[in-house]
Computed example of a mutant assay.
Amino acid sequence: MVKAWSVEWPEGLLPGEAAWEEISRQFVDARNDILITNEMPFGFWQPTRRPFDVQAAREWAALHERALDTLSRLPLAAVISSRPVFNGRRLVNEGFVLTEGRYEFIHQKHYFPSETGWEEELWFELQRPGFDVVKIAGIKVGVLICTELMFVDKARHLGKAGADLIAVPRATGVDHRMWRTAASMAGIASGACVVSSNRVGTRPGSNLVFGGGGFTVDPDGFEIAVTSAQQPAITLDIDTTLTAAAKSRYPVYVKEPALEPNMPGV
């Protein structure tokens, strides 16, 4: 059985510094486990303002590129994360997995908020569409990056594709109500476990506060645990017999309607 880790990591985290060394020690007995990090976990959160800052974007992307080696050296079976990648015009938010030092693309974020603190619609774009399931550490995994968790049809799609785990890296504020509700609905709609991680702390020079509160949800949509300052890392057992059973129950088994060519939506 595979364990999946949910964490809350500090805003402004840098590889190799004291906070990182403390984080690394949490995984000394986790060699068969999967870690889900928060969204674009290194450095300070950048898409806080208008206009798009090309130099800040380049530096943030370069920091995450350098940090891949640090992430790959964590003693885990796999690390699922996301990172900003500069494409010459804007950033893309790329979900990936590191397995034995090997980088594998999973998914790019599709949905971007546009409000104070989260001006992502201006900073990011999509280059590689799709919501796919990949095999990681013996289980089937899909990724929904932050805002994508709000779209329950995407969770249902991943469940229909066989996902045992939906990994949700995010960067959200102190109000967790919508996120925890959305995660429960994602579990219910997909028959998959949902594990989400978040950053925690204040963005310097702004009123932006990230609220931590990583969480784990079982394949029936029940919340199992939530991270806190006292317990910044938690685990959930991913039992594929339970996810398979959940996919045979309501509402996961309900079939999509077969639309005729002349019906709306075709």
Rank of each mutant, 00 (worst) to 15 (best):
E21A: 14
E22L: 12
I23E: 06
I23Q: 03
I23S: 02
S24C: 11
S24W: 11
S24M: 11
S24K: 13
S24D: 10
Q26Y: 15
Q26H: 13
Q26I: 10
F27Y: 10
F27L: 07
F27I: 07
F27C: 07
V28Q: 14
V28C: 11
V28A: 15
D29S: 12
D29C: 06
D29N: 13
A30Q: 04
A30V: 07
A30E: 01
R31N: 13
R31G: 15
R31Y: 12
N32T: 12
N32D: 15
N32Y: 11
N32Q: 14
N32A: 12
N32I: 08
D33H: 11
D33W: 09
D33N: 12
I34K: 09
I34G: 07
L35D: 06
L35V: 08
T37D: 04
N38H: 14
N38A: 15
N38D: 15
N38P: 15
N38G: 13
E39Y: 10
E39Q: 14
E39D: 15
E39N: 15
E39C: 15
M40Y: 08
M40L: 14
M40I: 14
P41Y: 00
F42S: 05
F42I: 10
F42R: 07
F42W: 08
F42T: 05
G43T: 05
G43V: 06
G43I: 03
G43M: 06
G43Y: 03
G43C: 06
F44M: 10
W45K: 03
W45R: 03
W45S: 04
Q46E: 04
Q46A: 02
Q46G: 00
Q46F: 00
P47I: 04
T48M: 08
T48G: 08
R49T: 11
R49Y: 11
R49Q: 12
R50N: 12
R50W: 07
R50T: 11
P51W: 08
P51D: 06
P51F: 09
P51C: 09
P51R: 10
F52H: 00
F52W: 03
F52D: 00
D53I: 02
V54G: 02
V54R: 14
Q55D: 13
Q55A: 11
Q55K: 12
Q55N: 12
Q55S: 13
A56H: 05
A57S: 08
A57Y: 02
A57H: 04
A57L: 06
R58L: 12
R58S: 01
E59N: 09
E59S: 10
W60K: 00
W60C: 00
A61P: 01
A61K: 03
A62G: 07
A62T: 09
A62L: 10
A62V: 08
L63G: 01
L63V: 01
L63E: 00
L63T: 00
L63K: 03
L63Q: 02
